[in-house]
Design a protein around this nucleic acid. Structure first.
Lengths: 291, 291
DNA sequence: AATAATATCTGACTAAAGTCCGACATATTA
DNA sequence: TAATATGTCGGACTTTAGTCAGATATTATT
């Protein structure tokens, strides 16, 4: 443990230097870092000013001045929130989107250089970064609905199928075409596809499709390697069960494979129990839950 | 590659937040971060002011002011470098060492909390941090002489023997007692023990012991997992060969095991060639080089 | 309806970091 | 020996980040 702490602190020092260098790169476009950090949180659809303040733990006065400055530059627009007219919502303008893209490009170049530096160990380094970033972002993971054919949902499903193939003997990737021809069953109004985000990286998914008017099936529960052991699968299951409830289903089913031991353990721990088989292989374990 | 870059940038964001929080923790002792960073580079034996400036990429005026301020507080002392009297050398006083220890304690607490947060995956997280920190520190790795019984040299040898045991069937750790009863042969004036440092972490070692007046043996070449694939083993070999040369040896020998393929590949690539056996198992490959 | 709480904004202020310049002593080169 | 380069220093200045208090509008509570 003592040694681990010394090594973590070495990591901090190394990264402080790197991040310090990264900060100055933002200055390349003549705007202070604080303002850029705000800009990066403003979405084209609009972001709550309170959320920005909260995320960056900024003083309200400072936030306000940053927003005014960005507004003067024409990068954002602000409006009062119709729901609570004390609140304000900041929205990225077209010019703002272009400016943000320019920052993306700068960061992109720096990142590419660092990855090149990693040489033959680039994959390992990226996996290591994922692990650390997911850990640091842990308290800010969000679960949002997504279209099953969106790029992020496809990435999740691809990873999920790869894992199935790796863990269950006799399966092949071409058995799982993507985009899924049956994607429509995971779409509203009867179905759902949820994606878990850690910052901008999709780190998990789960989906729901109707079987009959009162029964739905949970499918494709997957968690990114870097996010395992942190209770995300449980959160995803809670979320999808909540969706099922609000869609009016009273019974849930799922089929899984006995090789996926952690998943089965989770199901049992959250009130699922074995039921009669209702699908073909690769499923060999069937479970159900009454809502 | 594209995806890797997006993920690296996510890592940067996560770490910027964490490091930002880390920075403010330094303010707890009423000294600005910049000054603390300088203080951390000053060693009790003395550090070149130019080196400090270089490492932190500071303006000379700013560096000077930080040093004056630390000097006024009695934490450091400065002297002109006798070798080049334009240069100055900063030395940590006893008070400075105490102050630095206090900072260590603060960082220690924060680090311990983060590791606790990693839970069951703490080991993986620390390994991931090592990999990234070593990559970022790559251009600043230093090779320095150490006593074979110093804690860092022992750590290196322990890791080296563990690796031997893991890779060569039939070996047991108790065959390699530490501290080494024959440590004296690796000490000056006839022997050498070199340790490679990445920041404060020993990431590699190599040693030399006399066989006769003109022949020496290279032993215990080891590189930390996080530092592999970056040419460190080659640097260590170059360094130890240089030491051998300056000690007046004309011939070098080593014995190794055929399981250590990367090492053997390196030896062949740097002018070593096979020679007649001269030791017992676990050695099964013997090489020599004329200086 | 009065009071309290909340969200934002503005202005005044401070601390920290960093830049630029000239002065000075010393070292290197022509 | 003269000219040039280098390393350090201190002063004047700017930018950035952050704090604090008060004003205003709106919402929630009593």
């Amino acid at each position: 443990m003592l040694d681990a702490i010394a090594r973590l602190r070495r990591f901090n020092r190394a990264v402080t230097r790197e991040v310090g260098a990264l900060d100055t790169s933002f200055l390349g476009r003549g705007r202070p870092l604080g303002m850029v950090r705000v800009l990066q949180l403003v979405r084209p659809e609009g972001t709550d000013v309170a959320l920005i303040r909260d995320r960056l733990t900024l003083d309200s006065g400072l936030t306000s001045r940053f927003l005014r400055s960005l507004e003067r530059e024409g990068l954002i627009e602000t409006d009062t929130d119709p729901a609570d007219r004390r609140r304000r919502i900041a929205r990225l303008t077209t010019a703002g989107q272009a400016e943000l893209a320019a920052y993306e490009a700068i960061g992109h170049d720096r990142a590419a250089r660092l990855i090149t530096k990693a040489g033959s160990r680039a994959d390992e380094v990226v996996a290591a970064m994922d692990l650390i970033a997911t850990l640091l972002n842990r308290d800010q993971m969000e679960i949002r609905e997504a279209d099953p054919d969106s790029p992020e949902a496809l990435a999740c499903q691809r990873a999920y199928f790869s894992e199935l193939v790796a863990r269950i003997p006799g399966l092949h990737l071409d058995q799982f075409p993507l985009p899924d021809p049956k994607a429509d069953s995971y779409r509203p109004p009867k179905g759902r596809f949820l994606v878990a985000w850690s910052d901008n990286l999709p780190v998990g998914c789960v989906s729901l499709r109707p079987l009959d008017t009162t029964t739905a099936e949970v499918k494709r529960l997957w968690v990114h390697d870097s996010a395992r052991g942190q209770g995300l699968a449980r959160r995803l299951m809670t979320a999808i069960e909540g969706e099922a409830r609000s869609l009016g289903y009273t019974t849930l089913k799922l089929d899984t494979n006995s090789a996926l031991t952690e998943a089965i353990k989770l199901y049992r721990a959250t009130g699922w129990s074995d039921i009669a088989p209702y699908t073909q292989p690769p499923g060999d374990t069937w479970m159900g839950k009454t809502l």
